[in-house]
Simulated scan of single mutants.
Amino acid sequence: MELARELADFLGSVEQRLGTMLADGDAGPGVKGDTLMEAARHLCIGTGGKRARPMLVRLFGGAVNMAPEKLVDVAVAAEMIHSSSLLHDDVVDAGMYRRARPTVNARWGNIVAVMSGDLILSTALHRLAHLDPRLTQTALSVVVEMSRAAITEVEARGNLELPLERLRFIAEGKTGSLFGWCGSAAATLADKPEAAQRFDLFGRRFGVAFQIADDIRDVLGTDPGKPRYADVLSGTPSLPILLAVARDGTLKTKLKDAWAFTTVNPERTRAIGDAIEATGVVELAMERMNKELEAAVDALGPYAQQGTGAELVDWARKLSVGIAAQAQERSRAA
């Protein structure tokens, strides 16, 4: 209970600092307001975001006995780097809704979305430079990795021959690299280089598992933020889709035919999605997810039992248990 209160207090401090960081700036003489920061606040504040990255920063920091108040700026930077990627992703994907609200590009247009993403990214990096230049260097490397993974994902659309290692490269770059940075940054502030390496590896493996879990939820229809079989609809070769076409060659033909059109109608999407689920790929994807989670826990080494390291292990276990429960519920309902 005490840890729960401490975590809640920490996230409260993150929210307060995030509001300060995203306050209106100087938009020029005679200009009222700040369109770019207004757009950033629309995405970042009061939208029900999970704040997974700030929470990871706190748990990693607790595993090396870092005082929570020294971690707030790192947590805010992680959230802003993540948010900048979401602003850019929504432009790339022409997304109209995120977290049950219109996206920034839907409300203000692509130009504002891109520039708002650039502004909050540079603001986060600038803050890190004042905190510890080492963190700026590693954060820049993460941004490079995230960008390369994002373009690889775009180039992979519609590719049913995509190698699984390439898919994993995308998941690690887009999600795992920033998760890993949350750990390495906290350990760097604590001057614990071994912990930084271990935490980075944990975050990367956990991030890949996190993405596989999202792919599984898409098949199960348990992601409240998007419709079931959204990956079929968008032509995204997720792990379940690639595993399914490897098991059933007729699915590859059906998907190629469907993806040859600009849009896939709901009936066809549902029929293909049901056929994907029927191949048993949820279980196969869960096996891969659990291997990533076990590797993540192993990477922690002695820190799994130090401070809040046990909470990191618990996060990994809960992800596995949660997806298994959703799969069982879906099986009973079928």
Rank of each mutant, 00 (worst) to 15 (best):
D274Q: 13
E277Q: 02
T175R: 04
K226R: 12
R217H: 07
R99P: 13
F210W: 07
L293R: 08
A296Q: 00
L167H: 09
V57K: 06
V31A: 08
Q326F: 01
A94I: 02
S85F: 09
D223F: 01
D24W: 12
L162G: 09
V245A: 03
A156W: 08
V64D: 00
A285Y: 01
K291Q: 13
S122H: 06
K50F: 04
A186L: 05
L3Q: 08
A195Y: 01
G19T: 04
M115N: 15
S116G: 15
G203T: 03
A150E: 15
F202W: 04
Y97L: 14
A185R: 06
P133I: 02
G49F: 09
V31K: 03
S13N: 05
D26I: 10
A316F: 07
G235Q: 07
L162V: 00
P224I: 07
C44T: 05
E311Q: 14
K256P: 00
L242I: 06
V142A: 08
M80A: 10
G203N: 08
G249E: 13
V297E: 14
L255V: 10
V232F: 11
A100W: 08
G28P: 01
V232I: 15
S141V: 02
S320L: 00
L36H: 12
R157S: 13
G30L: 11
V112A: 02
K318W: 02
R41H: 13
L121E: 05
L43N: 12
L71R: 12
L119F: 08
E161H: 12
R332W: 10
F199N: 00
T138V: 11
V264I: 15
G30P: 04
T269H: 02
V154A: 12
E283Q: 11
P163T: 02
W181V: 10
A258P: 03
L160D: 14
P54C: 11
E69L: 07
G225E: 06
N65Y: 10
L36C: 06
F210E: 07
G322N: 10
F179A: 06
Y303K: 00
A324Y: 04
A23N: 11
G25W: 11
F169A: 10
K174N: 04
D231S: 13
S116N: 01
